[in-house]
Nucleic acid binder design. Structure first.
Length: 564
RNA sequence: UGGGGUGUCGACUAAUGGUAAGUCCCCGGACUUUGGAUCCGGCAAUCCAGGUUCGAAUCCUGGCACCCCAGCCA
């Protein structure tokens, strides 16, 4: 099903550039993560944009790690980020790139700017530099070191590189304009001294380029034509252009900004995600409730669904919060087509079919997908004692409840029609512990020869044949649509959804699931889409994560009834 | 407070001076051996005030609201 290709302002710019034959007709993008955390669905938007554009216009997309800060970056993240990009279905152009590959070139260019007289070594402290920078409504002041002669700057800068100075004693700054209303142009820092090991260059360097100095130049080195980033870098564009012009680079790259993704009922900032992990509110970065790629993957989300979601949300410059229900819709849409159907009873209620022979076992043939015969069939055993879903029985059925109730007949999917004849309760608690039913042998397969209809069809498992399983029902992590929008004196943590995870340890699933493999999606009929958990599942005792529930119109009716 | 951005159905996104469109949500209905899926229908928006124009979401003027920026983070 081909959907109309989504177009957006960035693609329009690219098409204009192509039409005007800019960059010699080339389109080159890049995805530039910093290796200091796990990727989340917000990054997926950027990945889909950058790789998608490259694919669409016959261009290339590089994967480049923006590893200019040795204090926070680690190889562990590099590997997980590569995995996530591939898992999403993208392959980068050639080798993985690193900003650190360009440290030497960047250094040479820095010397060039010093020689040109537009960069200088400043020896103010960090605090003093901050003071000199001024404020939004007040001009900055020039550093007393701003007019050091070129030779002195060169000498100092070389000694910075040689490791002669302590951290924080000197920085290299671009000499631009301390009175600029754009604070990024008030002599931005290009290099800072950091005597720290870098995850790739080890101890080769003790001066490290800042983002602004490294990023655009890395783009230029790689021949990037369209450097796409998020809105908060809009203020940096004049600086991006300044560096590239000062170096007099040919066919310079240009920066374009779009609004980052935000989704309701979750958080997408590294800081907040890290807090959830560190404070133990989730089990880790790959907790199935996390919006991280590893979390979504473990939850059972598919790359197809995520890519489709990213296409549907579009690309614009308006800050917005996408309803998480759109993500869920995209996932259902994908799984609806491909997930084989099985039966799993989450909250079992025993049913004894009194007129069914004690030792008899029948096998019924079930289609694996109701609308796709190519997915084949499987055999499902049936016997005198079965489990049905506790929610599928009501002693006093409300209006429009079409499921089982005393003296009522329902269909067991692809098996028989049964009628409830007796309800057995715990004498102490009054809780329903078992149902007694009779079946109509003439309704084998689920249809009655006399043509009578039943409104309800229930899923079931044979008690003797069923597999015990644990099922984890995942729900939104936060109760608030926007957990970042906090009331006075509160914190986003206060809006964690206490029932974001419901663990059901005594579920029963049909025996065909005995060799279900982690990562393969299933639809538990009438319940939702589930996947075998990749971390905690064990051969005899599978653990399933609910990826997303099915649409539940009864739940809506019931809720409406409760609200009157 | 200076600068840079952004305002279109409940949500997201189109319309680039010419019928305000699509998707999600929500609400009906049909169909149904999943209260699923599918199909059909419905709801519902141009931040405000002026101006230009035969005609304005779009252009102009003036407001208002929200976001970003004062790291040697990215």
């Amino acid at each position: 099903m081909a959907r109309m290709a989504q177009t957006d302002f960035i693609r329009m710019i690219i098409e204009e550039d192509l039409a005007a034959d800019r960059h010699g007709g080339r389109v080159a993008t890049r995805f530039p993560p910093e290796p200091n955390g796990y990727l989340h669905i917000g990054h997926a938007k950027s990945i889909c944009l950058n790789f998608g554009i490259a694919g669409q216009y016959g261009g290339t997309c590089n994967l480049r790690f923006d590893d200019t800060n040795p204090s926070t970056e680690e190889t562990e993240y590099v590997e997980s980020i590569k995995d996530d990009v591939r898992w999403l279905g993208f392959e980068w152009n050639g080798q993985v790139r690193y900003a650190s590959d360009y440290f030497e070139q960047l250094y040479e260019w820095a010397e060039k700017l010093i020689e040109k007289g537009v960069a200088y070594v400043d020896s103010l402290t960090a605090e003093e530099i901050s003071e000199h920078r001024g404020r939004w409504n007040e001009s900055g002041r020039e550093s007393p070191y701003r007019d050091r002669p070129v030779e002195e700057n060169l000498d100092l800068f070389r000694r910075m590189r040689a490791g002669e100075f302590e951290d924080g004693t000197h920085v290299l700054r671009a000499k631009i304009d301390m009175t600029s209303p754009n604070i990024n142009l008030r002599d931005p820092v290009m290099y800072r001294i950091r005597h720290e090991s870098h995850h790739r260059t080890g101890d080769d360097w003790c001066i490290y380029a800042t983002y602004d100095w490294a990023h655009g130049q890395s783009d230029a080195i790689e021949g990037i034509t369209h450097s796409i980033c998020t809105l908060e870098f809009e203020n940096h564009r004049p600086l991006y252009d300044w560096y590239v012009q000062a170096l007099e680079l040919e066919d310079p790259p240009h920066q374009f900004e779009f609004a980052r993704l935000d989704i309701s009922h979750t958080v997408l900032s590294k800081r907040r995600l890290l807090m959830l992990v560190n404070e133990g509110h989730v089990s880790g970065w790959d907790d199935p409730r996390m919006p991280t790629i590893v979390g979504l993957r473990r939850r059972g989300y598919t790359p197809e669904a995520i890519r489709n979601f990213c296409e549907r949300i579009g690309v614009a410059k308006t800050n917005s919060i996408v309803d998480i229900k759109l993500l869920e819709f995209c996932q259902r849409e994908d799984l609806e087509k491909r997930a084989p159907r099985v039966m799993g009873v989450l909250k079992p209620l025993k049913v004894v079919i009194e007129n069914y022979p004690e030792d008899q076992v029948e096998e019924f043939e079930f289609p694996n997908h109701p609308d796709n015969p190519e997915m084949g069939t499987r055999m499902v055993p049936f016997s005198r004692e079965i489990y049905i879903e506790r929610d599928d029985f009501r002693e006093e059925p409300p209006k429009k409840f079409y499921r089982l109730a005393p003296d009522r007949e329902v269909r067991l999917r692809f098996a028989y029609m049964i009628t409830c004849t007796d309800v057995i309760k715990d004498p102490d608690t009054g809780e329903v512990v078992e149902l007694r039913c009779t079946y109509d042998p003439a309704t084998k397969g689920g249809t009655a020869p006399d043509g009578r209809k039943v409104r309800g069809t229930l899923h079931w498992v044979s008690a003797a044949h069923a597999l015990k399983a644990e099922v984890r029902l995942n729900d939104h992590l936060f109760t608030r649509e926007n957990p970042n929008d906090v009331e006075e004196g509160k914190d986003f943590i206060d809006y964690l959804n206490p029932s974001s995870l419901e663990v059901l340890e005594d579920c029963r699933v049909e025996p065909s699931l005995a060799d279900a493999e982690p990562g393969l999606p299933y639809q538990f009929e009438r319940k939702g889409y589930f996947v075998v958990d990749s971390a905690d599942s064990k051969p005899g005792k599978p653990v399933f994560n609910r990826t997303v529930s099915l649409r539940d119109s009864w739940a809506k009716i019931e809720q409406a009834q409760l609200q009157g």
